[in-house]
Simulated assay, not measured.
Amino acid sequence: MTVRFRKYSWQLAPQDLGNIRQTVFIDEQGVPPELEWDDTDEIADHFLAVLPDNTPVATARLFYTLDDSAHIGRMAVLPEHRGRGLGEKLLRHLMAEAADQVKDLHLSAQEHAVPFYQRSGFHVCTEPYDDAGIPHYGMRCLAPTLATRHFGEDSQRQQPLILGSDDKSWLIDGDHPLPELIDSLVGQARQRLWLYDRVLDHELFDRQRLRDLVSWLARHHRNSEIRLLVHDDALLVKRRHRLVELMRRLPSAIDLRLVNDAYPPVEHPFLLVDREGALVRHRFDRPEGFANFADSGRVKLLAEAFQRMWDTARPSLELRELPL
């Protein structure tokens, strides 16, 4: 179905926009008016979806924060126009609008709508919570630019970037997609995060967002296994590294070891997340490779190789003794 999108500030928004929210959230879902209309409306961009004959059918809002993030909210499609793909088109229009300006996108999803948002690359990142008497989950997309590349009609990805669901490989052929793919995997980890590399490259791994994602895993999942396996710790001793500092603050949750070169090591770096996710680079000194979000067979083989190296590896005494 053909649909067009119009963007407004709250002050200049037509009455149709408010009418749709009134119909869907207040009249249909029973949200109290004092919760529906809030101060965020004043700072957000508001979008109205209209049919070719200018009939208004859906609305949503988008606002930006100071941490390079954007938030999508108040998505509503009129009851008589549901089931025609309008909500998905509206969501993806907002994602494309924000993708070049922010590093990640956030939203609050009603429980029944979680699969809808997963189809566009959002994953659950919170426990369930109550909002206006309705169960919700916090969701985010940590690679909006990558997600929006695969919204064409010929895309075969049913749930792009979703751990355990996206079974198509993401090819890495340059520096740009690596951090986004790493963060999208790590951000969905619930138990295992194993990283093997020659060094913990500062440009790739010494990033605040990655540090925050690893910290969340270590602090909120008591059975998590965060293992960093490297060949050389010399640069880590000489220069501060966010993951190393986090390891030293959470020594029971994060461990780093040095490969024993007396045993044949794997000749390419990789990252493993839980039982499904893997990011593999073909060489230590090049960014080329691929990422998989649902490849349990490959993860099992790489995990066995990692475990063999880990069992013969040694701790880095120099890093443990550095002052905080």
Results as ranks from 00 to 15, higher is better:
residue 115 P to Q: 07
residue 41 D to H: 00
residue 101 Q to E: 15
residue 62 L to R: 05
residue 116 F to W: 00
residue 97 E to T: 12
residue 110 Q to G: 03
residue 92 R to P: 03
residue 105 L to W: 01
residue 102 V to I: 14
residue 53 D to F: 04
residue 137 Y to G: 07
residue 98 A to M: 08
residue 102 V to Y: 10
residue 138 G to H: 04
residue 27 D to V: 15
residue 135 P to F: 14
residue 30 G to Y: 04
residue 43 I to K: 15
residue 14 P to D: 08
residue 130 D to S: 14
residue 126 T to E: 05
residue 105 L to D: 08
residue 138 G to W: 02
residue 28 E to M: 13
residue 95 M to N: 08
residue 101 Q to H: 12
residue 139 M to L: 00
residue 16 D to A: 13
residue 56 P to T: 01
residue 44 A to H: 00
residue 140 R to A: 13
residue 18 G to L: 12
residue 25 F to M: 00
residue 74 R to Y: 01
residue 35 L to G: 12
residue 77 V to G: 09
residue 113 A to W: 00
residue 32 P to C: 07
residue 123 H to W: 06
residue 13 A to K: 05
residue 71 H to I: 15
residue 131 D to S: 15
residue 140 R to M: 11
residue 57 V to C: 02
residue 137 Y to C: 02
residue 119 R to Y: 08
residue 129 Y to G: 11
residue 35 L to H: 15
residue 75 M to R: 12
residue 77 V to K: 08
residue 60 A to Q: 05
residue 135 P to H: 11
residue 104 D to R: 13
residue 119 R to N: 01
residue 95 M to Y: 07
residue 64 Y to S: 12
residue 82 R to I: 03
residue 22 Q to Y: 08
residue 44 A to Y: 03
residue 81 H to C: 13
residue 99 A to S: 14
residue 133 G to C: 15
residue 67 D to P: 12
residue 86 L to R: 05
residue 27 D to C: 09
residue 86 L to K: 07
residue 26 I to T: 07
residue 35 L to P: 10
residue 114 V to T: 06
residue 79 P to T: 11
residue 38 D to K: 03
residue 45 D to Y: 02
residue 126 T to Q: 11
residue 28 E to G: 09
residue 134 I to K: 04
residue 118 Q to Y: 00
residue 51 L to R: 08
residue 125 C to I: 15
residue 42 E to A: 13
residue 14 P to G: 03
residue 69 S to R: 02
residue 128 P to N: 01
residue 139 M to C: 02
residue 135 P to E: 07
residue 51 L to A: 08
residue 66 L to Q: 09
residue 55 T to C: 08
residue 92 R to C: 00
residue 91 L to M: 13
residue 76 A to H: 03
residue 101 Q to D: 15
residue 38 D to M: 06
residue 117 Y to W: 06
residue 41 D to C: 04
residue 71 H to L: 13
residue 95 M to T: 10
residue 143 A to H: 00
residue 73 G to W: 05
residue 35 L to T: 11
residue 88 E to H: 11
residue 80 E to V: 12
residue 120 S to F: 01
residue 79 P to Q: 10
residue 18 G to C: 10
residue 32 P to K: 10
residue 126 T to N: 04
residue 103 K to I: 12
residue 107 L to D: 02
residue 89 K to D: 13
residue 14 P to S: 05
residue 131 D to I: 12
residue 53 D to M: 13
residue 19 N to W: 14
residue 44 A to S: 09
residue 32 P to L: 02
residue 65 T to W: 06
residue 79 P to Y: 05
residue 37 W to R: 04
residue 78 L to K: 07
residue 111 E to A: 12
residue 139 M to K: 02
residue 39 D to E: 14
residue 67 D to N: 15
residue 102 V to G: 11
residue 133 G to V: 03
residue 141 C to Q: 07
residue 114 V to C: 09
residue 90 L to V: 09
residue 119 R to G: 02
residue 106 H to I: 13
residue 107 L to V: 01
residue 70 A to H: 07
residue 16 D to G: 06
residue 29 Q to L: 11
residue 25 F to R: 02
residue 91 L to D: 09
residue 77 V to C: 07
